[in-house]
Nucleic acid binder design. Sequence first.
DNA 1: CCCTGATTCGC
DNA 2: GCGAATCAGG
Length: 198
Amino acid sequence: MEWTDEIIAQLKELWGEGLSTAEIGRRLSITKNAVVGKAHRLGLPPRPSPIRRDGKPKVAAAEKAEKPATPAAEAAPQPAASAPREAAPAPVVAQSAPPPAPPAARPSPAAVAAPAETVERKEKAAPKPAAKPKPTFRSVSDPEPQKRRGPACCWPIGDPGTPGFHFCGATPLPGKPYCEEHAQIAYVRLRDRRDTMA
DNA sequence: CCCTGATTCGC
DNA sequence: GCGAATCAGG
């Protein structure tokens, strides 16, 4: 995996948006582990973790136990690195949204050319779904995005690292990193998105 | 089961 | 540095 500045910036952006690691991973066509791992290494602010890892590392404990480790290192004081980020309820994906709308009633974002193709989670080795010759999207919300220099929709098109990879670039919605149409896809329930697209 | 994020550790 | 495997809670 080649972590270019662009991709890293994307990661930070999405992370800051409060998206789940898996979601970010889907967007960038990488695994959530990669996302988490990188985020961790980058020192990005941790999100509320569903779990609490302290008293029972089964395997890890066993392995660790075999390592003597220098007792002196334990005395090191550790100032908590808690980030100021507290309220990040998120524009977040409506994962827990009520299911009133039948599948058929899905918004169906017209001109959208499914970016990350929502690759199958099990098919990690899947070849690049890329190939999006016709970026029909930007013409809708912004006829001439290339002239603008302000905020740009950072929805990834294609896979990072591949030749045709780029970001949407259209004018984002206020407060969001995506343009109107991509925001639509961005904030829907995962399940729906999975079978709706493709 | 599905989801989630964090840590570990071989590479 | 990277990320799959693993762990663990909801």
